[in-house]
């Protein structure tokens, strides 16, 4: 089943400055904690911790299936956040969702999300699922989990084809080599040439 896309760009533009200030101060206060994932340039430590926890709730570790660490989901999310061809509003939205989730936790339990026990964290997830932004934000995270689970390992995700093996997926041939994988393939959009013979191809 597909759902109509929530307009993240309009939502980003419509949020108040107060929300952003609140989020900034909260996250700044958590900067001292130790980094646990590859987001050195994109997320604060506090943001990383919340995101890591949410990803684990969405795609929990089991004995029979890959988890977000074994398929390198955080690498894929960082790649998404730093890809210059992804809409900056979409990237901001993904980051701001972390703050909004924590804000929801503060409102309901008067505590940061990371201070809650597992049951209460899941309550928060269910709570934001009932909002347009929350449903859309979690949906985006799931899409990025799926990408890290099922795209070609050339992108440093789906490590050792763990996702393909779990779901018995047979990759198509030829698989991508570095020079024709994303973003290298985009070099073709930069060619100023006139082709007059097959020998030029």
């Amino acid at each position: 089943m597909n759902k109509p896309e929530f307009n993240r760009r309009h939502f980003i533009k419509g949020i108040g400055a107060a929300t952003i200030l609140w989020q900034t101060s909260l996250l700044f206060s958590c900067q001292q904690s130790k980094s646990i994932s590859p987001f050195a340039e994109t997320l604060s430590n506090a943001q990383q911790q919340i995101l890591h926890r949410v990803l684990n709730i969405l795609f929990p570790k089991t004995n029979q299936s890959p988890d977000i660490v074994s398929i390198n989901t955080e690498y894929q999310i960082n790649y998404y956040l730093t890809d210059p061809l992804i809409d900056p509003d979409e990237q901001k939205y993904l980051i701001k969702g972390i703050g909004w989730l924590d804000q929801t936790s503060q409102k309901i339990y008067k505590k940061p999300f990371m201070s809650l026990n597992n049951t209460k964290q899941i309550t928060i997830i269910n709570k934001i699922l009932k909002t347009s932004w929350g449903e859309s934000w979690l949906s985006k995270l799931l899409t990025l989990i799926f990408e890290s689970l099922l795209l070609d390992p050339i992108y440093h995700i789906n490590t050792n084809q763990a996702g393909w093996q779990w779901l018995h997926h047979q990759a198509g041939q030829p698989r991508p080599m570095l020079d024709i994988a994303y973003p290298e393939i985009l070099k073709r959009k930069k060619e100023q040439i006139i082709i007059t013979g097959l020998d030029q191809l």
Partner: peptide, 14 residues
Amino acid sequence: PWYRTGDFSKDEMV
């Protein structure tokens, strides 16, 4: 652009 046959692979990302 001109994508050559050799540019194509079964890469869902692309």
